[in-house]
């Protein structure tokens, strides 16, 4: 298992076999989850049909956080053992996590407007998500700014690990800030206690999102690894001919 991640060629073969499974799995789950979320599940007795936003908002939030955990974990593996595949995984996870963090913020805002009459509430969850989004932006900006690939990978890994350590503290501080200094928040994302008729479609959609992210990460890592090795081969050939 471990060695499959360390050896690029073996990882590429494994990924090539897994990507269709996760990809089609995601497609099937979306085919079930979307109608369930949009049609079958009943409107909420308080929130009406806006509750359907939950079925994309909550999975996005879950994935943006899972992606950061993965980013930090992969960075740690790369930093300690210098497995290139781990760095590629970190590189693949960052834009995905950033997009889902953005989607969480956007759908949260679009949910808040009809429900609570405000586009943005400085509540603890939205604010934490905003900070997480900034962490992703910082990570990607740092990697983009350093030209040497190895240096960029190392600097990125160090930053991602620092972010992972700091994230619980940030979360704590934002909760602390929110409970102590804000008037009681009007937004309650948990909403009324969730009903079974809502829980199932939510679960299916969360699985669909997760399968999709897994497929994309595996595919990207495989292609990045292939490109990297092909680039090295091409360069060796050109320089070999040049002399």
């Amino acid at each position: 298992m471990w060695s499959a991640f360390a050896n690029p060629e073996r990882f590429e073969r494994l990924a090539a076999r897994l990507v269709p499974w996760f990809g089609w799995g995601a497609a099937i789950l979306f085919a079930i989850g979307l109608p369930w979320a949009l049609i079958i599940s009943p409107p909420d007795y308080q929130q009406g049909d806006t509750v359907r936003i939950m079925y994309v908002h909550v999975p996005s939030a879950w994935l943006s956080m899972a992606a950061y955990a993965g980013l930090g974990g992969a960075s740690f593996v790369y930093f300690i053992w210098r497995h290139n595949i781990a760095d590629l995984a970190a590189q693949a996870l960052a834009p995905i996590g950033a997009v889902f963090a953005f989607l969480t913020l956007a759908t949260g805002s679009l949910w808040g407007r009809p429900m609570w009459g405000t586009w943005w509430e400085w509540d603890a969850r939205l604010t934490s998500m905003l900070v997480l989004f900034l962490l992703y932006l910082g990570y990607m900006a740092l990697r983009a700014a350093i030209e040497d690939e190895r240096l960029a990978a190392r600097a990125g890994a160090i930053l991602a690990m620092a972010g992972l350590i700091n994230l619980p503290i940030i979360k704590f501080s934002v909760d602390w800030w929110n409970t102590l200094h804000q008037p009681a928040s009007v937004i309650r994302l948990d909403g009324p206690t969730i009903h079974m008729s809502q829980l199932w479609p939510l679960l299916v959609m969360a699985l669909a999102f997760t399968a999709l992210m897994t497929a994309l990460v595996l595919m990207n890592v495989r292609n990045m690894s292939l490109a990297k090795r092909a680039e090295a081969r091409a360069r060796r050939r050109i320089e070999g001919e040049g002399t």
């Binding site: 910082g138 740092l142 700014a145 501080s173």
Partner: peptide, 27 residues
């Protein structure tokens, strides 16, 4: 330290450091 030697590192430093400093701002 992370951004040392990078062009226009000031902007990058602010983007990296600010989210990590959130707890201090709050406290």
């Amino acid at each position: 330290a992370l951004a040392a030697g990078v062009k226009r590192s000031g902007l990058l430093i602010a983007l990296i450091a600010a989210p990590l400093q959130v707890p201090l701002l709050v406290f």
